[in-house]
Amino acid sequence: MMSFILSSLTVQANTLKAVPVLKINPEQCVALLQGQKCYVTVKLNWRVATAGNYCLFSSQGTDALKCWTQQSKGEFKQEFMAKTNILLSLKQKNSQVTLVDAEVKMAWVHKKKGKPRMSWRMF
């Protein structure tokens, strides 16, 4: 019984380990006004099951932000300027298939041009 539980836990752990992980911090960029450029320094960690050649891309461009050779995990830090959400994705080198991605979302405090923060809605 005990060996079954242990083997089951091992399988679960291996499954979790096999899932690619991409963690970002912070997950949100806050500007004062809607539509303003938002500046955020994003720290990123990724991990995959098998070592290989991987590259990190953002939705802001086609070129890789950084590539790693024969690695199964990595770290990255960069300041971004954006008006829309930034999608960060990890791909195998020379592949278009996204292994894992994460998004930095844009938020703001005030609407632009003096409009009220909340609008009336009826349901």
Binding site: Q28, K105, M118, S119, R121, M122, F123
Partner: peptide, 16 residues
């Protein structure tokens, strides 16, 4: 009868 919509919720990519 009314709901208030906050811009803080607007950052959701699904909304875009």
């Amino acid at each position: 009868s009314f709901l208030l919509t906050s811009p803080a919720l607007l950052a959701d990519p699904h909304n875009e």
